[in-house]
Every structure is written in structure tokens, then in C-alpha cells.
Design a binder for these strands. Sequence first.
DNA 1: TTAGTGATATCC
DNA 2: GATATCACTAAA
Length: 176
Amino acid sequence: MIPQRLPAAFFHRDCLEVAPALVGKLLVRRLPNGTVLTERIAETEAYRGTEDLACHASKGRTKRTELLYRESGVLYVYLCYGVHWLMNVITGEPEEPQGVLLRAGVTAGGPGRLTKLLQVDGRFNGRSILTQESLWIADDGFSCTWHTDVRVGIDYAGEYWKSRPWRFVMDGKEGA
DNA sequence: TTAGTGATATCC
DNA sequence: GATATCACTAAA
């Protein structure tokens, strides 16, 4: 099957539907020099609404978190620990702050390594994955099974939100 | 286990 | 202007 760019409708759903649906999809990056890099998504996490204490939107609507309120398909890319760019795709309705963190690829384990491999940084913040020619997500017909787990690195979010099984991992890529 | 790194938010 | 925080990683 020829890889086909995922349409707006794919992302225009609740993040808890989109996050598992993205596992196994193909991330495609076209560099300025024409080189095309692809990486299959192996792990995602959902961040959902102002109630979710792990979601950045729970800290209030600021210039930074404003992006979470944008229309689905918009990228939210931010620098973590001064070193690593983390990439999210906005999902759901506009004005409804939620998104999916792309946490790992099949060959790139970890959100920081994934963006490093694909050479994604803050320049992509606010750009839509639906329209641009330098970065998009495609369905090449690959399918796989996955399992859930708790999200990583959110100790500050409290027991309830910390224990939500909102991480989605391709089977065989971890734990199993 | 721990240092490194810098954007962002919040407080002077 | 100063400080605290952070959805991580590599090295040891």
C-alpha cells in the first residue's frame, strides 16, 4: 500500500482514541536537502484537558499552552530540560486542550531521541501536520497490536493522574 | 546516580 | 531582572 497522509478526521477525535491509533503509523520527514526520513511510531501518550494534572494545560492558559487549544493536527513542540525537543500532535476540538505525545519510534527510543532523529525542533511549533510538506504522518497499511501502561515522567501530577493508563506501546517494543 | 541545558512562567 | 521548574538523556 502506498503511504497515505492521515486526514484531518483522523486527529479530530479524542486523544484517547488518536493516541493508540497512531501506534504503528509512519512519521515522514522531508529535509531541506530533499532527503526523506521515515520512522514508525512505537509509543504515544495522551494528555487530556485542564483536569489532567499531567497535561500542561492544567497549569493555565498561557502563551505556551495556548497551542494545546488549537485545531487538531497542529504540532506542539517544546524544549524539555534545556536539551530535548518533545513533539505532540493536537487532537480533538479547538478550545479543548488535548494532544498526543510521540514518545518513541521503532528505532528511536525516547521522545528526545525521536525528534533528534527526525531533526524536529521548535521551528515546528504551531505548524500543522496536515498541510506541510516537511513533516507528516502516513498510513502505509502496517498494523500491530499494542498495550497500555502508565505515563512516564509525571511524578508531579498526583496519584490519580499518574495512574491513568494513557500510554500506548507497540507490542514487542517494551514490557510486552 | 547525577549533571547538563535553556525556554517558560512567576515572582520580585 | 532573578529564580524555579521541567512529559529527558548520556555517561559513569
